[in-house]
């Protein structure tokens, strides 16, 4: 097993829901992320999958130190990310970078590509103009673009190219961890393949670890080494790609696979296990959050299930696998 790079422990983020003007009265909390733990290994890819609103982006933002957690810790090489300041913070900012979902919204419309790509470098290091220019050029070439394209503005590029620019910017400080929040879901199928291949090549070449966020199982299977499945703020199942894809255990994971569209008309979906929609996050079910939609719901599901290791590194939070029941 490779060395751990980032360790996340019982991470939570509860957003207060308030009423009235100027802040007003808090009427409840949305538990966007609620007790999430995972480990990202050096040079490997952990994928976070789940439906819209399950807290993937919030987790990413916590890991990126864009939000302060309500509870729990995020440790990069044993240092608590949210306690950093000064030089340590600079170290963090150069070690962890991100690429966001929407290539049309993630590049400042009023900056040249050159400046966008250089941003993480100039923000954290004292570097000469010439060196910046050189590094930008090299990085652009690394992601398969040309140096002169640095003089252009984002709107002069297609979606795939923009995502390359975002990637170049994220890679310029040679980070150890890259957080990818749905990096290809806004792109065309043919372009998705280009960007995903590029991601794999870069990982092989630079040894960067990825935290990949996606709702598309096929993408995850292609890129990831480990997978964590999220539902309403918590991780319900995690394990290696093979474990998750070959022997999914949690009814939700299995439901996701059932719902995934077939790759061939021969394999049309037989029956849908998961019924209905995700309950309101303001008012989540007690006990196991998935029990309102679960095809195998039991009476014990009204209590919160523990996370059980069903195989080496394969964890499931479901009563079906607690010793008394299985």
């Amino acid at each position: 097993m490779a060395e751990p790079l980032m360790v996340v422990e019982s991470l939570s983020k509860h957003y207060p829901v308030s009423e009235g003007q100027y802040g007003g009265r808090t009427v409840g909390y949305v538990k966007a992320v609620d007790g999430v733990s995972f480990t990202i290994e050096k040079g490997r890819t952990l994928a976070l999958v789940g439906e819209s609103g399950c807290g993937k982006t919030t987790t990413a933002r916590l890991v990126l130190r864009l939000r302060t957690p309500t509870g729990g810790t995020v440790k990069l090489e044993e240092r608590d990310v949210h306690q950093l300041s000064g030089a340590d913070l600079k170290w963090f900012r150069t070690s962890v970078q991100a690429v966001f979902q929407d290539p049309w919204a993630s590049l400042s419309p009023r900056m040249r590509v050159r400046d966008i790509v250089a941003e993480p470098l100039v923000a954290n290091h004292r570097v000469s103009k010439d060196e910046v220019r050189e590094r930008v050029g090299v990085t652009l070439e690394k992601v398969g673009m040309q140096r002169w394209q640095g003089d252009l503005y984002p709107h002069e590029f297609s979606g795939g190219q923009r995502q390359r620019v975002a990637l170049a910017s994220a890679l310029i400080t040679e980070p150890r961890l890259l957080v990818l929040d749905e990096p290809v879901s806004a792109l065309d199928v043919s372009v998705q393949a280009q960007v995903m291949n590029l991601l794999k090549d870069l990982q092989a070449e630079l040894g960067t670890a990825f935290l990949l966020i996606s709702h598309d199982l096929a993408t995850v299977r292609y890129v990831a080494d480990h997978v964590a499945v999220m539902y309403m703020g918590s991780i319900v199942e995690s394990g290696s790609v093979d474990q998750i894809f070959e022997t999914p255990r949690h009814p939700y994971t299995r439901g996701l696979f059932d719902a995934a569209l077939p790759t061939h008309p021969r394999n049309r979906t037989e029956k849908l296990e998961i019924k209905g929609e995700m309950p309101s996050p303001l008012n989540p079910p007690t006990g196991c959050r998935f029990r309102t939609r679960c095809p195998q719901v039991m009476s014990i599901c009204e209590t919160v299930p523990e996370t059980i290791e069903v195989a080496q590194g394969h964890r499931v939070a479901c009563h079906l696998f607690t010793p008394e029941w299985s």
């Binding site: 990126l64 991100a98 919204a105 923000a123």
Partner: peptide, 24 residues
């Protein structure tokens, strides 16, 4: 997302205000 990106890049809040928010 571009402001989030700038944060991740380590750009200071004042610089973000001036370079990313104000022009927009």
């Amino acid at each position: 997302e571009y402001v989030a990106r700038a944060h991740v890049a380590g750009t200071t809040s004042w610089r973000i205000l001036l370079r990313h928010v104000l022009p927009n």
